[in-house]
Simulated assay, not measured.
Amino acid sequence: MQAGPDAPLGPVNAALVPRYAGAATYARLPRLDEVGHADIALLGIPFDTGVSYRPGARFGPAAIREASRLLRPYHPALDTSPFAAVQVADAGDLAVNPFDIAEALATIETQVGELIADGTVPVCMGGDHTIALPLLRAMHRAHGPMAVLHFDAHLDTWDSYFGADYTHGTPFRRASEEGLLDLDALSHVGTRGPLYAAEDLSEDARLGFGIVTSSDVGRRGVDAVAASLTERIGDRPLYLSIDIDVLDPAHAPGTGTPEAGGLTSRELLELLRALDGVNLVGADVVEVAPAYDHADITAVAASHVLYDLVTLIARRLGRAR
């Protein structure tokens, strides 16, 4: 759909082509090669070689795209039509080596760096959480040290696993060690469950992270938590990384390392909407593993989370113009 010659090319018109028909791009948006340049690009990274428990997140991007067919072009909660405000496109999937983690990380870093060189804002679909490290490396080159909001059941700041330094449990430790992060503006949100030792928390704090547990969200409420997060972030360039297991398994069963006691999908969406106005320059949603999903519950949740991320970025770009 296109309102005029200078307007963004938007999704396929559902009144002309049923939602279950046609190409399965995210939200039935145009492909990046159909528009040439996009203000926001949805990029799939089907890589899950870094997982420590259930594999299968390599199939996450395809499942999210399929679940996104039902999304509509107007976001009433944020009073925005994101696909009409800016050009949004589906950039397809990166082809990364499934057998060599180091090569895969290098490929992701290089190709995402090329994607954002002209100012395109990346919103990535994983894949496992290992991909956050090369994404942050590419974002750091473009924006300098990044503020990070990390929505996850887990800290992902462990040192190694079976002697491996690059896994889905280590990306934020490596990112902190590499100087990619603004240590005054880092927060985990939604963490819960047992740890290996109390030292996990002290090590995490040493790396610069603050913690808002899922219980904190329940006790303090969405508005209070969002206010504290936005105050911590300020106007710094923000990268938002969302492991879908931040949701309770009732809301996201299709993931690799589920933990009881998580956020509801409503709480997560309301937290994101309350961040309206922050300088969001990139994001990812990871760890959707459709083989463990039921009735596409997890993929539907992820598709809506991505829609809110795109809307927040579209509003920021609109204000800047």
Score class of each variant (00 low, 15 high):
residue 101 I to L: 09
residue 46 P to E: 13
residue 72 R to Y: 07
residue 125 M to Q: 07
residue 38 A to M: 10
residue 75 H to G: 01
residue 96 V to L: 12
residue 24 A to E: 14
residue 35 V to S: 02
residue 22 G to F: 11
residue 77 A to Y: 11
residue 96 V to A: 13
residue 116 I to W: 00
residue 84 A to T: 14
residue 67 A to M: 09
residue 99 F to D: 15
residue 57 A to W: 03
residue 30 P to M: 13
residue 76 P to E: 14
residue 111 Q to A: 06
residue 93 D to M: 04
residue 81 S to N: 10
residue 111 Q to D: 07
residue 117 A to M: 01
residue 30 P to A: 06
residue 59 F to C: 06
residue 98 P to C: 03
residue 72 R to P: 02
residue 106 A to S: 09
residue 62 A to G: 11
residue 79 D to K: 10
residue 28 R to Y: 06
residue 25 T to V: 08
residue 114 E to A: 11
residue 61 P to T: 02
residue 126 G to H: 00
residue 98 P to F: 04
residue 80 T to L: 15
residue 52 S to A: 13
residue 58 R to M: 10
residue 34 E to V: 11
residue 88 V to N: 02
residue 54 R to C: 06
residue 44 G to N: 11
residue 71 L to S: 05
residue 126 G to P: 00
residue 33 D to P: 01
residue 44 G to L: 12
residue 120 T to P: 01
residue 96 V to M: 12
residue 100 D to E: 14
residue 38 A to N: 02
residue 83 F to V: 11
residue 27 A to P: 00
residue 113 G to H: 02
residue 83 F to N: 03
residue 50 G to M: 09
residue 126 G to F: 00
residue 124 C to R: 00
residue 102 A to R: 05
residue 25 T to E: 06
residue 45 I to K: 01
residue 82 P to V: 12
residue 30 P to I: 05
residue 73 P to H: 08
residue 83 F to M: 11
residue 31 R to L: 15
residue 93 D to L: 02
residue 118 D to L: 04
residue 71 L to C: 14
residue 108 I to C: 03
residue 119 G to N: 01
residue 63 A to V: 05
residue 66 E to V: 07
residue 109 E to F: 04
residue 105 L to N: 10
residue 52 S to W: 12
residue 48 D to W: 06
residue 102 A to C: 04
residue 64 I to A: 09
residue 86 V to L: 07
residue 101 I to T: 13
residue 62 A to P: 04
residue 85 A to C: 12
residue 104 A to R: 03
residue 74 Y to D: 15
residue 36 G to A: 11
residue 41 A to D: 10
residue 118 D to E: 12
residue 57 A to S: 10
residue 75 H to M: 03
residue 46 P to C: 08
residue 78 L to I: 08
residue 111 Q to W: 02
residue 41 A to S: 15
residue 70 L to F: 11
residue 96 V to H: 09
residue 35 V to L: 02
residue 71 L to V: 13
residue 26 Y to W: 08
residue 103 E to K: 13
residue 49 T to V: 10
residue 36 G to R: 03
residue 71 L to T: 07
residue 42 L to M: 14
residue 82 P to Q: 11
residue 79 D to A: 14
residue 108 I to W: 00
residue 107 T to K: 03
residue 70 L to P: 00
residue 25 T to P: 01
residue 76 P to Y: 13
residue 54 R to M: 07
residue 76 P to M: 09
residue 88 V to I: 15
residue 50 G to E: 03
residue 73 P to E: 14
residue 66 E to H: 10
residue 73 P to C: 05
residue 26 Y to K: 06
residue 69 R to L: 15
residue 78 L to W: 05
residue 106 A to D: 11
residue 62 A to H: 09
residue 123 V to P: 03
residue 79 D to L: 14
residue 79 D to T: 13
residue 103 E to Y: 11
residue 62 A to S: 10
residue 77 A to E: 15
residue 31 R to G: 06
residue 99 F to W: 13
residue 46 P to T: 08
residue 88 V to K: 01
residue 38 A to L: 09
residue 47 F to E: 07
residue 29 L to R: 00
residue 26 Y to M: 10
residue 104 A to E: 08
residue 29 L to V: 06
residue 43 L to T: 00
residue 80 T to I: 09
residue 43 L to G: 00
residue 62 A to N: 07
residue 64 I to V: 15
residue 100 D to H: 12
